[in-house]
């Protein structure tokens, strides 16, 4: 197992995703002899996990069962330990396409945060790309570096514990793409430009507040970035439901020819499959500002 390469069987040291139910998943570090408590009972790693095929059904001690899934950056995003606010898959997907990431891309990112986006970037740029990620919080930088190792992607990433606004990304003239998710992105735009290839590239800044966006756009324009474009993308989930709609009874219709099944119709209803929106949904995550750095 690795976050950038599928494996078939669960092995000692893997990260496995235990799928409990639709909205409940947990990431488990598989260790010989270890146990994991779930609401369906205990999962014993040595017998229940190691050697099983990813995707298998595992019966827990209380008789309930769970599925054990191969980790992907998307599954990791919904189970990772939050040390910061994180980016979710809808924004991540948009960022990945709009930054034109692909195998071999060299990417700079700040801040690393909990590493939600980092894993998705690594998946996309492997096996020949590299991620330079900068996090100013020391513990967070250490923790995420540890995770990259556990997830067997550490060969693709360099974690730097520094302030991107003061010290930049630690590399110059190499990046195909730069991503900023920091409180004052406009202060890092110059560093972003310096980190990028002279041939040009793409940059993205994620900010929750429109005031941040305005300042960032100004800084991008001042630094000569082109095609500056701000957008917002939201995920709308449709819950599939079977609904039953009763038919109204207007009484017998004298003009209509009498039908044998009229009595049945009195209590008739129509059943159909449809979808309902969730009662509440995330209505704002952040504004995504993209721009192109032209060739110098």
């Amino acid at each position: 197992m690795s976050f950038v390469e599928y494996g078939d069987l669960i092995q000692d040291g893997d990260i496995a995703i235990v799928y409990l139910s639709h909205d409940s998943m947990m990431a488990v570090k598989v260790q010989q002899g270890a146990q994991t408590q779930t609401r369906y009972g205990v999962i014993r790693h040595s017998t229940d996990l190691i050697g099983q095929r990813y995707g298998s059904k595992v019966t827990c001690s209380k008789g309930g069962w769970v599925h054990v899934l191969h980790p992907t950056p998307e599954l990791w995003t919904v189970c990772l330990p939050h040390r910061t606010q994180i980016l979710y898959t809808t924004d991540i997907a948009t960022i990945t396409m709009m930054l034109e990431l692909k195998p071999g891309s060299i990417v700079c990112e700040s801040g690393t945060g909990s590493g939600s986006l980092s894993h998705a970037i690594l998946r996309t740029i492997a096996p020949t790309g590299h991620l330079h990620t900068v996090e100013f919080h020391q513990q967070r930088a250490e923790k995420v570096a540890e995770e990259f190792k556990e997830h067997r992607v550490d060969h693709l990433v360099t974690v730097r514990n520094q302030d991107v606004c003061k010290d930049g990304f630690g590399v110059t003239g190499v990046a195909d793409a730069v991503f900023l998710d920091i409180p004052k992105p406009w202060e890092a735009v110059g560093h972003a430009k310096a980190a990028m290839r002279k041939q040009g590239g793409r940059v993205c800044s994620f900010s929750p507040c429109i005031e941040q966006v305005q300042k960032t756009c100004e800084a991008l324009a001042d630094q000569g970035f082109q095609e500056i474009s701000t957008l917002e993308v939201l995920l709308r989930v449709h819950d599939v439901r079977t609904v039953s709609l009763p038919l109204p009874d207007f009484g017998p219709d004298p003009s209509a020819p009498a039908r044998p099944d009229t009595k049945e119709q009195n209590h008739a209803s129509v059943t159909l499959k449809t979808t309902t929106p969730p009662r509440e949904m995330p209505g704002h995550t952040g504004y995504l500002t993209f721009a192109t750095k032209p060739r110098l």
Binding site: Y19, H22, H67, L69, T90, I210, V213, Q214, C217, E218, I228, S229, T230, L231, E232, V233, L234, L235, R236, V237, H238, D239, V240, T275, Y287, T289
Partner: peptide, 21 residues
């Protein structure tokens, strides 16, 4: 299959200009 989700996405572009965002 597990983890089934039926979704669509909503996309909005912005004009960002001083005092005209």
């Amino acid at each position: 299959t597990v983890n089934l989700k039926l979704t669509d996405s909503w996309l909005r572009h912005y004009q960002v200009l001083p005092n005209r965002t």
